[in-house]
Design a protein around this nucleic acid. Structure first.
Lengths: 215, 215, 215, 215
DNA sequence: AATGAATGAGGCTTCATTCAT
DNA sequence: CATGAATGAAGCCTCATTCAT
């Protein structure tokens, strides 16, 4: 999050609260985190939280939107420069997710799964907007992954149903997060990455196992 | 749940509470359901709940175990008679999951995802036992799915890494639940089913689309 | 309130809370009293208050009903034995109200007005049930006072509109409470009492100024 | 409120806030209205409210004074031109109060009682200044009504205790407001008006029922 | 085996108020 | 003169839990 992108003080405070809440909800679930704790983590008074969000649910909505924007921008958009080599693009995405999981494990000793799905699972029934927002995000993810599948098929001169593959890739990504969290094992991310690469026709494990680059 | 399997009245009461809590936690999450509500749904006094469970966390543990046993017994064990035709076995599993989702949507207007992953995601950080129990369950699931993969490879005279495929099949199953819930669309289950069948070498969509059988 | 009239422990606790709340609302208004304070005054835990009342408004409703029953029973019903002498009956009512005001002033240094009108004025707009309950109570009061007016006319062989007089007597009673509170002067009660007696044809001040008889 | 009477901008802003607060306190009670709401209704920033009033209590004091001045000026002073016919004077006062209640009922669907008594009842115990201010106002009202009683006695060549009658007329006016609010019925105002006219020796109902004259 | 009653702690939200600009 | 931003305290309500019967 580029803090400087928020011109007014209020906007910065708001963004600060969202970021703090995002981290907490991710780790401890929505209901597992009190507004008190969010305020403390954001280093603002509890009443300030309510200046920017109508209620805790409204905060959850802001958090899931924030998570969506971050994910799209930093995980997908950022790795789409080199779509000419779709396998590298997909590998870069998985490497980034893997790296994030390694960091998580070092920082907190645990893996927290996908923050978007986490909120959507917990609140989907009682807060339909949350589920709908998550759906919008994963629709975009599916589009990105379909484009990778299509590019891969083109590169290999293959005939493939890119849309269907995009969906499967998306579901594998969901599975990567879920199984990594349940097993508390980041290597599950790599497993799903390899399976994904194999699905689009690049079974060589070396693609994903390249050296990592930056944070 | 086979009520008759619990001989004493106490055991029946306990099982009744677990079943009620399981449904509520599934729909509204652990923290989203009060012990009051569980007691009311189970039609017992709140203090009775505490006669059978040390605290709410203990109840969560019983619920996840109950969900695990049910899943293994009714979804996997029950469909393993005809392993001779592994593709039919996998299709039967997915058809069952799909049917359950259709029922859910009719009953409550919404899909609730995998109850085991739901609890594990919500409580994994603050209740490691829950995560570990979930891991045990999905380890079993992975073994079942690996056996299907191995049988399929044998049937097709293929050389395949059944273990690795079992993991991918498990992750696809996670993805099926997650994306069905997020999209609120049961057909995502079928998508994952087809992808799974294709993965083990049976791309014909007709396998999964057969007529359904029984409840 | 006859505490022994409530058989179960719960009913006693409930009645205890209502009585405590009644006194506090009377003195400090509804919004001026916190549920915490009510609980403390009733010597029960706050959560116990919510076991018996859905919310604070529900408590207000119980309080106004309690006030109504008490008023009708102890101020009107109790003084209607000797309706044969309507002027004495009316005088007894006013003497009782006056005595209550004297006690109030000694106990708390202030007069609190009519507890029913107080709640109705404060909450009438936002809680119509409160206003309606108050209306029901004062409809009864008006009937009692009309009967006095009718009996007085009969006693004096006069022709009088007892209903219209009953309304005026009721309004004078309202005025007695209001002006006593605003002036912080119990003698306003006696002023209204004398005016009321004069209205029904008994202008002798001695009627109301008789010796008082116990609480 | 004659806005032009406030020369400086600050005085106008202050008067604007008082008027907004007066309306809100009248309808929803003092504790039932937040400073936020007052600021919003007055269309000024909350901090601006605190520029003109030390705290919320100070605002309540200003409101009750404002209500007192308005009442004395517009209800009593304005109707005292024709004291030569005291019965018409009293009738004009009641007609004005009645008209205000009709308007209230059309505008908000409810009657709010006397705003001065409302505040005094709610805050009398915890803000003695409020009660004292109300007392001062009603002392004036009593003087006005005593003068009417005296003039009426003179007109009818009667011997009457004007002071005592003034007090009763004041109490009847209190009763008019209270019973109109409790019954949510403006006609109670007219009832008290007729009773008041009868008290000063003018029982003909036609006096009050004359045609009304403008706002 | 089961329950009605009670509770301390904590949750969400709003209040009156102040500060810096 | 006015305001956007911030805050500590307090308000209403619910939670998980225990006790006495």
């Amino acid at each position: 999050m580029n803090i400087a992108a928020f011109p007014t003080k209020g906007e910065r405070t708001r963004a600060h609260i969202v970021a703090a809440a995002s981290g907490l909800f991710w780790r401890h679930s929505f209901h597992g985190v009190s507004v008190d704790l969010v305020a403390e983590a954001a280093d603002v008074n509890k009443a300030t939280v309510y200046r920017y969000f109508a209620d805790k649910r409204d905060l959850a909505l802001a958090v899931i939107r924030y998570n969506g924007e971050m994910t799209i921008a930093e995980v997908f958009e950022a790795n789409f420069e080199n779509l000419a080599e779709p396998q590298d693009c997909l590998a870069a995405i998985y490497r980034m997710v893997y790296g994030a999981h390694l960091g998580m494990q070092q920082d907190t000793g645990d893996l927290h799964g996908c923050p978007i799905v986490g909120l959507a699972l917990e609140l989907g029934q009682d807060m339909p907007e949350i589920r709908e927002e998550a759906q919008r995000i994963f629709d975009q993810v599916e589009i990105y992954l379909s484009r990778i599948a299509a590019a891969a098929a083109a590169r290999l001169n293959r005939d493939a149903n890119a849309e269907s593959q995009g969906r499967t890739l998306t579901q594998l990504l969901h599975g990567a997060f879920a199984s990594a969290r349940v097993a508390s094992d980041p290597s599950r991310i790599l497993d799903a990455g390899h399976a994904s690469l194999e699905l689009i026709g690049f079974p060589e494990k070396s693609i994903l196992n390249k050296e990592q680059s930056g944070s």
